[in-house]
């Protein structure tokens, strides 16, 4: 089942890639088509996905993989969703507020249960990362469109 799914996902990716490469306008005279390499790579990927699907049909029941650890997968999907929200919230609230919220959350996911440690991370994580990257390295921090704590602190 897993091998089928892998083959089908690859086939879907390659179909989208072929369709999208086909949208690239034709080359002007004396030039080469800009879509030639993406198109060729996508067709080759489609062929490989065909091999994967054929391989899956030949795979016998004995070779089937053990039960997947759904708990771990859910945890990782959860962390990925946190990551997506975290990066998006930079745009809304700048760097400090999202980091102050996410730091204890991620520490908790990784098994930190000390209340003092989690509380300290709310202050220390944004502070340390801000000082290293935005003060010492001189990177311009992301600006929060809705509310920016740094902007508010700096008046």
């Amino acid at each position: 089942m897993r091998a089928y799914a892998e083959g089908l996902v690859l086939a879907a990716i390659s179909c989208v890639a072929i369709w999208s490469a086909w949208q690239v306008p034709a080359a002007s005279p004396g030039d080469t088509w800009a879509g030639i390499v993406p198109f060729a790579a996508a067709v080759a990927l489609l062929a490989l996905s065909g091999f994967l699907i054929i391989g899956a049909t030949r795979q016998n029941a004995d070779e089937a993989q053990g039960e997947p650890d759904n708990g771990a997968t859910l945890e990782i999907i959860g962390l990925f969703i946190i990551a997506l929200i975290y990066q998006q919230s930079f745009r809304w609230f700048g760097y400090l507020v999202p980091t102050a919220i996410v730091a204890p959350l991620v520490l908790y996911i990784f098994g930190v249960r000390s209340r003092i440690g989690l509380a300290l991370s709310v202050i220390l994580c944004p502070l340390v990362f801000h000082v290293i990257f935005f003060v010492l390295l001189g990177v311009f921090p992301p600006y929060g469109e809705v509310f920016d704590l740094l902007n508010w602190i700096q008046g």
């Binding site: 990716i13 002007s28 800009a34 879509g35 993406p38 790579a41 990927l45």
Partner: peptide
């Protein structure tokens, strides 16, 4: 397949020769 996916991801953006958009 991994190598081909790496190639496809690298193709995202403007073509350096004709400046046509890809992916």
């Amino acid at each position: 397949a991994s190598a081909l996916m790496g190639i496809l991801v690298a193709m995202v953006g403007l073509d350096p020769i004709s400046s046509e958009e890809r992916y």
